[in-house]
Amino acid sequence: MDANAALVDFLLGLGDDRLVLGHRLSEWCGHAPILEEDIALTNISLDLIGQANLFLSLAGDLEGKGRDADALAYFRIDREFLNHPLVELPKGDFAFTIMRQFLFDAFGYHLLQALAESGHQGLRGIAGKSAKETAYHLRHSAEWVVRLGDGTDESHARAQSALDEAWRWTGALFVSTPAEAALTKSRVAPDLGGLEPVWRASVNEVIQNSTLELPEAKPPAGKGYRRGDHTEHLGTLLAEMQSLARAHPGATW
């Protein structure tokens, strides 16, 4: 795979993660536990979709086939999406949403900080802005993890259950494909494996404060998701998300 194709795929992955996660969060709109949280979750959803738009646009530009962010978002099939399975899982209950968000935010925060130093100027610009937004998302999700973990017996049980479930999908976050390893060499992207210790430290601190327990087993590293191996959930998610755009191909909205 040539360097440009590797970068395009990397950008698609960054964009797809945020598009799919933003979409999942948007499902809470009008259904959150309290009005203030409706606003908070929607705020994060908006930030993520905005970031996705930027990453996908850049990917489309570099790809050079005339595809813009919408073409990529609405007219690729699930096998072509490069997001991590973690973000496509259904939103579950509030505890699952928060826990999944927290684990992703901690990763996203460190990743974007590293990418803000990328050798690629376009990527650097997007990452810098996105890192600030993600710092706020992380603050929100971390504070909720603590409140759910150290709230009532029920919230503690739900949060622990959420952590146990989401944890097993996090291994994949730190596995680089050979193409990504090449990007690391050319100083465009950080070594993903190298982010794991700092991610773990952030996560550990919050989990301890929340009285929850990290599952002991190191989560299994995913392999192959980058080649389009997803859970069954992505198919239904995209079927809904893309349905109207696909019903009127070529239309302007």
Partner: peptide, 15 residues
């Protein structure tokens, strides 16, 4: 509305 000061600050920021 918020359960504590930290969440009040975040909610105020969002709203």
């Amino acid at each position: 509305h918020a359960p504590d000061a930290e969440m009040a600050l975040q909610n105020a920021r969002d709203v």
